[in-house]
Design a protein around this nucleic acid. Structure first.
Length: 192
DNA sequence: GATCTTTGCGCGTGGGCAAA
DNA sequence: TTTGCCCACGCGCAAAGATC
């Protein structure tokens, strides 16, 4: 379920607007919570800008949802089975990394499962977010190599390695090799 | 071929304006 | 007064061109 860029930008914008409205937040309110300017939020909601992974993470954190919840199709039929063809896929316009929400949406589960294909040489950094401190994640590498930075510590992950970390910590993902990497992220969403 | 400079593009921000 | 949108600008990055 991969969308073309324009369609995806509009879907993200609509989803962002819905979540913001559900929380009775104004552009200013969300801007204050997320640290993203209200002009940028407005452009994203109108589908005029494609948010980067880092920016989207800040907005999701401010809204109190995970990226998985964000990309889960609102109102979609709830099923315990998520076929690969139906799993939401999003590509970060900045790094090119591909994020696939594997776990079925709308089940009420407090655990999300995400598959990531990370391009060679790419890097993504996520700022620390107080709103995400109740969330934890396992990063389980299948193929390639990844450098994961948590705070000041850099962890080199090899196939089979698994790193446990707090989602709210300042962290970064980097593929130092010339081959793409593939890994899974299992997220404990904590109390919602 | 390597290095430096220029140019173009996209992302993101701040300030200001108009409508309700 | 609040809210959402528009405009101008800065910044970073990659591609193209120039120079050695």
């Amino acid at each position: 379920m991969e969308f073309d860029d324009e369609n995806l930008a509009h879907r993200i914008g609509a989803r962002l607007g819905t979540l913001r409205a559900e929380r009775s937040l104004t552009l200013d309110g969300l801007a204050e919570l997320s640290g993203v300017s209200r002009a940028m939020i407005s452009r994203v909601e109108r589908g005029e800008a494609s948010p980067t992974a880092a920016l989207l993470a800040r907005l999701c954190s401010a809204l109190g949802v995970s990226l998985s919840v964000f990309f889960a199709a609102g109102g979609a039929e709830v099923s315990p089975l998520a076929r690969r063809a139906d799993q939401p896929v999003w590509r970060d316009p900045e790094s090119g990394y591909l994020r696939r929400v594997v776990a079925p949406g709308g089940t009420g589960s407090r655990v999300d499962v995400v598959e990531v294909e990370f391009p060679a040489g790419a890097e993504v950094r996520f700022p620390g977010q107080q709103a995400s401190r109740s969330q934890w994640q396992h990063v389980w590498l299948f193929e390639g190599e990844m450098d994961l930075t948590v705070g000041e510590t850099v962890h080199r992950l090899l196939p089979g390695d698994c790193l446990f970390m707090n989602v709210g910590d300042v962290h970064g993902f980097r593929n130092p090799t010339d081959k793409p990497a593939r890994y899974a992220v299992i997220i404990d969403l904590g109390h919602r």
